[in-house]
C-alpha cells in the first residue's frame, strides 16, 4: 500500500479507521495503485449514539457525552437520556473505553457500563495509477476491523 491515509471525518459522527496493518498481503505492485478507503458503513444514528473519533478533542467528546446524560438539557442534542451508546472503531476503541470509564468515574458509581465488541467490514478501493487498458481494473477489497459499543446507562431503580 503506497499511501497509508487515515480517512474518517472530523464532522461526521463516525469512527477513526486507523488500521493496524490489518491488510492481507495482496500481490500487487506497490507503485501502481492508490489506496482509497471508503467510509465505514454507518448505522442509523439516534440522538444518544456517540461515535468516537480521533480527530475531535477528547475533552469535547467527553463533555458531549456528559451533556447527553445530564438531565433537563435543552439544545439540539437534547439531554436527560437514561442511556447512551459510545461506539469506537479501530484506533478509537481505546478512546471510547476511556470516555466510558471517565463518565462512570465522574458519576460516583451511578452509571453502569455494558460493553459489546463487534467486527466491522471496511471497503478499500485500489485505483491503478497507470490507467492502462489491460491492467486498469480498479480493485476493491474488504478487510475487517474491530469495534466496540459501550452502553453507558443508569440502572433502573
Amino acid at each position: 500500500m503506497t499511501d497509508a491515509r487515515s480517512p474518517g471525518a472530523a464532522a461526521l459522527p463516525q469512527t477513526q479507521t486507523a488500521d493496524p496493518g490489518g491488510l492481507p498481503s495482496v500481490d500487487m505492485d506497490p507503485v501502481e495503485y492508490t489506496l482509497r478507503k471508503r467510509l465505514p458503513r454507518k448505522l442509523p444514528k439516534r440522538r444518544n449514539d456517540v461515535y468516537v473519533n480521533m480527530k475531535t478533542d477528547f475533552r469535547a467528546q467527553l463533555a458531549r457525552c456528559q451533556k447527553l446524560l445530564e438531565g433537563g438539557g435543552g439544545g439540539g442534542a437534547g439531554g436527560g437520556h437514561r442511556e447512551i451508546c459510545v461506539h469506537g472503531l479501530g484506533l478509537a476503541i481505546n478512546r471510547a473505553i476511556n470516555i466510558a470509564l471517565q463518565l462512570q468515574a465522574s458519576s460516583q458509581g451511578a452509571l453502569q457500563l455494558a460493553a459489546n465488541t463487534s467486527t466491522v467490514e471496511l471497503v478499500d478501493d485500489l485505483e491503478p495509477d497507470d490507467p492502462d487498458e489491460a491492467t486498469g481494473e480498479p480493485l476493491t477489497r474488504t478487510r475487517n476491523n474491530s469495534a466496540i459499543h459501550i452502553k453507558v446507562y443508569y440502572p433502573s431503580p
Binding site: R5, S6, P7, G8, A9, A10, A11, L12, R36, K37, R38, L39, K55
Partner: peptide, 10 residues
C-alpha cells in the same frame, strides 16, 4: 471528495 485525507466522499 476524493482528494486529501479528511471528509472522504463528502
Amino acid at each position: 471528495k476524493q482528494v486529501g485525507q479528511e471528509m472522504s466522499s463528502w
